[in-house]
Design a protein around this nucleic acid. Structure first.
Length: 262
DNA sequence: AACGTCTCCAACCGCTATGAT
DNA sequence: GATCATAGCGGTTGGAGACGT
């Protein structure tokens, strides 16, 4: 067995194609198996990636059900509401946003809170000094990092926590955290409503779940449910890219799952 | 046009949860 | 029940492109 060096970093198109093929053959559960099998030096077909890396690439980028592009106002609102409720449970939140990944939501939230922080700074600090303040806040590319609890021992400012994030009883204790952070949900909604000039559709007429007023679009969750009505939407380019393998991929994909699950 | 800064996003790392033996 | 292997999650980082001066 020839063990090749594990690759890291950005994925090449060829790697993506190979991964799609392997997932088609073996399903999207046995990542270590896929990594091992694909790592074999068979006719130069090896991926030489870790199982974790393969899974991440599939889940965050290659999965056909993924939406691309900016979050819609509805999605943004939903993220904020769910984050208010659940805290940094990105995966859980992602399950309520079909086509969005936990990574995407996490990144969105991070960006959102950073903007909020900057806006607040601008609002509280006179304009004459705001620039220096902001620049000091973002002394490097990762403004948030200086607030990271990992480094400072303080709570990350973009972590509002959720009702059951810090309280195992599930009691609502988020308000206190909001106070620390300085942004209540009302503030956030106000800002959003202002910035969007009421382009938001009413969201409270939608489905409700778990007793909260959360709109859940009636879309099949690509989160990873492979029902027959799953939306297999891909960029046109990607679709073309995968075309040569699709014929074998999609039938064999289901076949592969059946094979694995018995 | 050149440079510096900012934003976004893909990917990695470390830890935890879960299932198999 | 203990142990191990694997999958999954959340936090963090690095780089590319956008943007401003």
């Amino acid at each position: 067995m020839v063990q090749q060096e594990i690759r890291k970093g950005p994925w090449a198109e060829q790697e993506d194609l190979k991964l799609v093929n392997f997932v088609g053959l073996f399903g999207d559960r046995k990542w270590d198996f896929i990594a091992k099998v694909s790592g074999l030096k068979v006719e130069g077909e090896g991926l030489n990636r870790t199982g974790k890396s393969c899974r991440l690439r599939w889940v965050n980028y290659l999965h056909p059900g993924l939406k691309r592009g900016k979050m819609t106002p509805q999605e943004e609102r939903l993220v904020l509401e769910l984050h208010q409720k659940w805290g940094n449970r990105w995966s859980r939140i992602a399950h309520k946003l079909p086509g969005r990944t936990d990574n995407e939501i996490k990144n969105y939230w991070r960006t959102f809170m950073r903007k909020k922080a900057q806006e607040k700074k601008r609002a509280t600090i006179p304009s004459s000094t705001s620039s220096s303040c902001i620049s000091s806040l973002s002394s490097n590319n990762h403004t948030v990092d200086s607030y990271s609890p990992m480094k400072t021992g303080e709570e990350s400012f973009y972590d509002t926590g959720g009702a059951n994030m810090t309280d195992p009883t599930g009691l609502m204790i988020g308000e206190e955290k909001q106070g620390e952070q300085g942004y209540s949900m009302d503030d956030i909604w106000k800002d959003i409503d202002l910035s969007e000039e009421n382009i938001l559709l009413p969201v409270r007429d939608g489905l409700r779940e778990e007793g909260c007023n959360i709109y859940c679009p009636p879309m099949p969750s690509p989160s990873w449910e492979y029902s027959s009505d799953t939306i297999w939407v891909m960029d046109e380019e990607k679709s073309k890219m995968f075309l040569p393998t699709c014929d074998q991929f999609f039938p064999s994909y289901e076949h592969g799952r059946a094979f694995l699950t018995g």
